[in-house]
């Protein structure tokens, strides 16, 4: 807008929206100047971070400590002060095993089955998730027809709630679901997917990949687009084969993104609960009962709500997640350092 022009509606709205911000800045100006005068310029970043740190502390750090404190107690009281101190008894109970490779030899067999099921799940889920995400990203990075449409199609499931995703697939896979109807129409017998441990695990992995692949594809696509095109042009001029271009250019330059994807997928895989809980209920038996569902069942669904044991299992899970997060941080740093 040049001087003399009449303000448009947009200008008026912008000015109106800026007004509260201006007032806020005017209010905060003096106290912030005072803080800077007292604490020096180096204090200011911490002051700006304070609201976020307070929020993080209140909703993450303090509950973490409360959870740890719960894991050292027993009984059914909800209030920490009313609970009985048991020391490391809950941990000893969880780790009391004749043979760690055989859950039936453990006192808390369901905890170990949860661990093994989670390990199986993340091994297959992460492997195929990364593989399919990479393939999809490579295809979507090419100049194909309706590329924008396909990018949206692959990303769409990410926008759905995990519960909605699980319910959709449950309706497809039930005895009288769409898939069985299709099998019958082709002359096959119905398959009771949720009665078979193998099929249940397969669908838990498949649905999880279907729901989350778009997100990881997007990360890899961004990585692919950041690779300088002149490298590919040079390779083309040299007559390098497609396979060699992928191995020598694409994969090494995409590796930092791949690492982030792998670690993020691992963390999400360990935390898996809602999709599978709705899809299979953890069954058949405990075939798809993962560690988070074990914690939920122990803490909430039994008549005797064993918060101490559930908290101890949460701490174990927290340690695993901490290790994975450190791996992700290391991978990110390596990428940032080139």
């Amino acid at each position: 807008m040049t001087p003399g022009d009449a303000p448009t509606l947009s200008d008026r709205l912008t000015a109106a929206a800026a007004w509260p911000v201006r007032v806020l800045f005017q209010i905060l100006d003096k106290p912030f100047r005072l803080i800077q005068r007292i604490g020096g310029i180096k204090t200011m970043p911490y002051i700006f971070l304070l609201p976020n740190l307070a929020f993080f502390g209140l909703f993450v750090v303090i509950p973490l400590f409360i959870n740890f404190a719960f894991s050292l107690t027993g009984g059914t009281n909800l209030y920490l002060t009313d609970r009985v101190y048991t020391g490391t008894e809950q941990y000893a109970f969880l780790f009391d095993c004749g043979n760690y490779a055989d859950p039936t030899s453990c006192r808390e067999d369901r905890f170990w089955r949860g661990i093994y099921n989670t390990a199986t799940f993340i091994f297959f889920q992460v492997t195929f998730l990364v593989l399919f995400s990479l393939i999809t990203a490579l295809i979507l990075n090419r100049k194909i027809r309706a590329r924008g449409f396909f990018r949206a199609v692959f990303f769409f499931p990410v926008l759905l709630s995990p519960v909605v995703v699980a319910l959709i697939w449950k309706w497809i896979l039930l005895r009288d679901g769409i898939l069985n109807a299709a099998l019958v129409s082709m002359g096959f017998d119905k398959i009771l997917f949720f009665v078979s441990p193998e099929w249940s695990m397969f669908w838990a992995i498949f649905v999880s990949i279907w729901a989350n692949m778009g997100f990881y594809t997007l990360i890899l696509l961004a990585g692919l687009q950041a690779i300088p095109p002149d490298l590919y042009e040079a390779a083309e001029m040299d007559g390098t084969s497609t396979e060699r271009v992928f191995r020598r250019i694409t994969l090494p330059l995409l590796w930092p993104n791949m690492l982030v994807v792998i670690v993020l997928a691992l963390i999400k895989g360990v935390q898996i609960f809602d999709e599978v809980y709705v899809l299979t209920g953890g069954g058949p038996g405990t075939a798809t009962q993962f560690i988070v569902q074990y914690i939920y069942n122990t803490g909430f669904t039994n008549q005797v709500q064993n918060f101490g044991l559930a908290s101890a299992a949460s701490v174990v899970l927290g340690v695993v997640l901490f290790v994975l997060t450190m791996m992700q941080l290391a991978a990110t740093r390596r990428r940032d350092n080139g």
């Binding site: 005895r175 209920g281 069954g283 058949p284 009962q289």
Partner: peptide, 13 residues
């Protein structure tokens, strides 16, 4: 009895 009911979920569901 069909396993779908008793065999398809876990715990005390």
């Amino acid at each position: 009895m069909a396993k779908e009911l008793w065999g398809s979920v876990s715990g005390s569901t």
